[in-house]
Design a protein around this nucleic acid. Structure first.
Lengths: 232, 232
DNA sequence: TCAAAAGTGTTCGATATACACCCATGC
DNA sequence: GCATGGGTGTATATCGAACACTTTTGA
């Protein structure tokens, strides 16, 4: 009985109105189940899971520092019940694998960052979280549970939202992001007040361009100010 | 390279003033590092981690239903760095193990429950969380991180405290428990008001006995009332 | 001039905090 | 009668929720 342990990363991006997840396509069409899946990897001998997750992110995006959080292990013996998935594992890792346990990570990425795909994936694409394809293993379930986790993360630390926004953003973008994560609407007026009260959100003298209506003001998040004012 | 996956359980109990953790002593004195440790087990072939954790709890206490929550995987290659720990693993499981990853669980138990120890442990004992011995592997770190986790759990669901209290309890016991979990004091008067406002905490016509001061009223938690009033 | 979103203030109720006194009991 | 903790009430501050109208701009 050969048990292997992997990490899988649910990488969220925000396109201004919807949450997206970064999916990859496995390298060969000639093997079954070559559709989209979560990026992941076996954990190497000398790595712990955090290192392995950082490596997956780096190989996928070229980015070394990204917000990252371990959130749950998926261990059902039935997660490799599909023989096609097992065949793919054997092909991809050159090992006979009986059981695969995965430690899943939640990660946040600015969706407009240029991605330098270093690894062997054929395609890498952002996919709206409510339009996901059927994925192998229990990857659909992992994404579903990661939605709860990101909500929780936002509660613990409001500042995580800025990992998902471009450096300049509108009040509406920020509000849409909150609404996408919390999965409920909120009052735009009250939201605006609260945003203004966050001392680390700085209004700029710039406005949106190319919008078919009154242009909104742009804001930026001042991380250093936040750190300074939030430490004792 | 043989990687194995285990579960370890941090079982909390509350003695009226302090949080305690249930520790076990490994079965043989003739093997090194036979001191106290967290109860745990390798995950068996047909089990997922949740089932394995339930099994560990059952073998340890005879209790089948206990509040239980997966909270983190510990995966450092260095967690089995101590050769004594490796020797013990080999003795206990009859396998050569190179690497051991553990999925840790947080669990809550009424401390005065009679424990029916079914498994092979020599001793099983409650140990105050701030007086823990040095334990093998990274068990001390696991307990430390579980303190954060239980705090979080309390925030998500206030009702978990009642898993730690006897069926009848005083206002002071409840407050001490909150304080122990949150690790800070709170105003007894305001706390009392909030407790009274929890519709599912029912005052009884009974009082404490054998206390060297005015006896406090006993209360009970009505779980059914809670469920009824909290569902749509 | 119309459509679409931006931006702005006030009121109200709920909740959290701070704080001081009397009560019951065992010793 | 005194020490110890039990039990209650009031005032204040803060926060979030509800809510309507005017402004800007591009089409």
């Amino acid at each position: 009985m050969r048990t292997f342990v992997s990490v899988d990363c649910v990488i969220f991006g925000f396109d201004g109105s919807r949450l997206n997840v970064l999916l990859v396509q496995r390298q060969s069409e000639q093997y079954p189940n070559s559709g989209l899946k979560l990026p992941g990897s076996l954990i190497y001998q000398e790595e712990d899971a955090d290192i392995a997750a950082h490596r997956v992110l780096y190989e996928l995006t070229g980015i070394r520092k990204m917000a990252l959080k371990q959130f749950k292990s998926f261990t059902s013996p039935r997660r490799t019940a599909n023989p096609d998935d097992l065949k793919w594992l054997e092909y991809a890792y050159g090992n006979k694998i009986d059981r695969l346990i995965t430690i899943s990570y939640l990660s946040l990425c600015k969706i407009n960052r240029r991605l330098n795909v270093i690894s062997k994936y054929k395609t890498v694409e952002w996919c709206p979280v409510n339009r996901l394809p059927d994925m192998p293993f229990d990857h659909n379930q992992i994404v579903a549970e990661s939605m709860e986790e990101i909500k929780q993360w936002l509660n613990d630390d409001q500042m995580v939202v800025f990992e998902l926004l471009p450096s300049k953003f509108t009040a509406t973008a920020l509000r849409n992001l909150y609404e996408a994560i919390r999965q409920k609407q909120c009052d735009a007026r009250n939201f605006h007040k609260k945003m203004i009260n966050m001392f680390c959100v700085i209004p700029l003298d710039e406005k949106q361009a190319n919008v078919p209506h009154r242009a909104g003001r742009l804001y930026k998040f001042d991380k250093n100010l936040y750190k300074k004012r939030m430490s004792i």
